[in-house]
């Protein structure tokens, strides 16, 4: 991890639920810390739309439509392998592994470096 900023201990890794996370107040900054497929990601709790508390939102698999080769719709389903977080203010969705807005990937959540040491999760802000 780049040795810049202030390091904060969040919690033991085993207290971060897979496919979920916690909200942490690290100094002046609110950060969402999430565990997805074994990796930990940390984002500022500030939506790129209007600054909403994005990291407090619902985490859901990507909602996708399944088509037949002829273009007809078979049905719709949640894809648990592509987790998204939805900002509770207006519903902008972000890929939980990249922080990119799924509808308009030019928007991306501010990301913080994460390190797991001795079973604990640390971020640097």
């Amino acid at each position: 991890m780049a040795d810049q900023g202030v390091e904060y201990r969040i919690c033991p890794l085993n207290q971060l639920p897979e496919g979920g996370g916690v909200l942490a107040v690290a100094g002046e900054v609110e950060v969402g810390v999430f565990r997805v497929r074994g990796r930990v990601h940390a984002y500022e709790n500030r939506c790129r739309h209007q600054g909403g508390p994005v990291c407090t939102g619902e985490i859901l698999g990507r909602y996708e439509q399944v088509l037949n080769p002829d273009g007809t719709v078979i049905g719709e389903r949640f894809n648990p392998d592509q987790l998204r977080i939805a900002c509770p203010w207006h519903g902008w969705e972000y890929d939980l592994e990249t922080g990119r807005c799924t509808a308009d990937p030019g928007y991306r959540l501010r990301r913080f470096p994460v390190e797991v040491r001795d079973g604990d999760v640390f971020i640097r802000v």
Binding site: Q15, V22, A24, V25, G52, C55
Partner: peptide, 22 residues
Amino acid sequence: TRAEPRQATVISDRSFSFLANA
């Protein structure tokens, strides 16, 4: 020497004040 990490305040259920960010 590496600075001692600080402890963040952790909100496990990610609960929030709806308009604090506003």
